[in-house]
Amino acid sequence: MSTKTKSGLLPILLAVGAVVAVTQTDIAQEVINSVDIEEKEADEVLVPPSFRGRVKECTPEQLTKDRRCKDLPVVPIDAEKMPYIARHISVAWSTGQPALLHYEVDLKARELKNRSVCTPARLAELKPKSCDEYPFKSAKEGGPGASTQGVPTIEQNRQGGAVGRAYTVNRLQDGDAFLVVIINPGQIATEEFEG
């Protein structure tokens, strides 16, 4: 696991502009101060600012347990269990990738999306890391243009369970919207996974 540094995460989180939660490091306090949010509020969930209002009434525990906030299905990514995937997603958000995605039910379409970004060449380049793609291939927004990054295989495994659970609990149908949120953002890795 990489060491947290002051230089790695700040630009990302500021760009996301965010409901941030990073309380255990100096950088966390800097972020909290810079975006002028209370520490308690900041200690919970990370979403892009335009979606903060959609989840502000739901606690991280509710988001994790119910996998929804009111009528909005949610895919919670726990940075404590998936620090590098959470990093990848937050970086992707900062570059304009969406947090609100739409469910792709067609397995063939998913496969085409996956193959267009996690190509055999990309897999070979990242090996032994796992090719993580965001937006997910199980979203309409996935595929060409998606961000890819190498992550630990165990995180990829955990993400598969987290995503599958959220889809199943919410009984998502093709095209249904869901919001990706990061729980425990204080645990987001501050550097890319080196393998």
């Binding site: 996956n114 495994n157 598969g160």
Partner: peptide, 28 residues
Amino acid sequence: VRPSHGQVCLGDYKSDPDTWPEWTDAEF
């Protein structure tokens, strides 16, 4: 099957999703 998220899943999707494996370090 095309593995996805680095895995193949076998079982009953009618089972409670909250009981599905979490991938502990030991399991991995």
